[in-house]
Nucleic acid binder design. Structure first.
Lengths: 159, 159
DNA sequence: TGTTGACCTCAACTATGCTTGAGGTTCTAT
DNA sequence: ATAGAACCTCAAGCATAGTTGAGGTCAACA
């Protein structure tokens, strides 16, 4: 009677239910699974079944994404936590504090950029040597491609 | 004598020179050209030549990118400006003010997110209905995919 | 029992922002 | 004149974050 059908107390949720409850597409859940962010087991018909804890996990993933953390990093952060038990308050504190720091850094970078931009709206120099907007040292190390060789607009002699 | 060779007064720069002076790769300049962000003319051997004004243009592109503006939008913003004359102080003020506003918004979003995160570090609820972190209304409309249908964790009856 | 919706896999496609490589040409210095 | 650097085009590849579609199976309700 009412074990895993109709409505009732279900500990196992299907992919469609997770999708509806978490607000992400079914294809995204499949995708997250291939990337190791979430896990499922299968029922005898090979359909995915999830423990309720995956709902929390997906919620955490979405929050982390909003802060700008790439999926691979989210996966690594979550990888220390077992898939089959809900995240504890402690787990969440660890994760959210780490991510908050990163977010703080991102905000600081963008704020610095904005301040430079504000200063430079009046001047418009964009000099590679002088303008803080052009200086790659302080603002946003978003791509780790190593230092660019920045030769300068050294020939000021052009008429 | 010394017209376009060796060193001297060159108004026309090759792609390699632009790359060195602006700090972007040659391939990137080609790419920007295909995307309509910059333009070049050709010498009689079919090699690209650029007016010096493209240096400023590339500088502006890089700054805009740092603020998180996608290339297509940068292209549109720059499209109203002629390629063959340097950006004026006025041009720059228009562009940088627009971008500053967007940057302000981004910062505001991220700051709101961080504040929610700070609040939620202690609670860890992540409730879809109650938690500001889960509420999609205020934070970061980064993807314009339309509103998600967010059904809720409505069955609180699970043991 | 039958139909229909939900599910399965796997490959291919989207978009952004480039880089890399092959195969060939041009420029510049000596 | 010739070597080598710099340039050309075009196609393919990479990384991120997914979506879409084809072809087929399963589950749940009537």
């Amino acid at each position: 009677m009412d074990k895993n059908t109709h409505e009732g107390i279900r500990r196992e949720l299907s992919v469609g239910e997770i999708a509806r409850r978490s607000g992400v597409a079914v294809s995204t859940l499949h995708f997250y699974e291939t990337k190791g962010l979430i896990e499922s087991f299968r029922n005898r018909g090979n359909q995915r079944r999830y423990p309720r804890s995956v709902l929390r996990r997906v919620a955490v993933i979405k929050v982390a994404q909003k802060t700008g953390i790439p999926l691979a990093e989210i996966r690594d952060a979550l990888s220390v936590l077992p898939h089959d038990r809900p995240l504890t308050a402690h787990d969440w504190r660890m994760l959210s504090e780490t991510w908050k720091h990163k977010l703080d850094e991102r905000i600081a970078s963008l704020t610095a950029l904005r301040d430079h931009l504000t200063d430079c709206i009046g001047c418009g120099c964009l000099s590679m040597t002088d303008c803080p907007l052009r200086n790659p040292r302080d603002v946003l190390g978003e791509s780790g491609h190593g230092p660019l060789i920045l030769e300068e607009e050294a020939d000021k002699g052009a008429s």
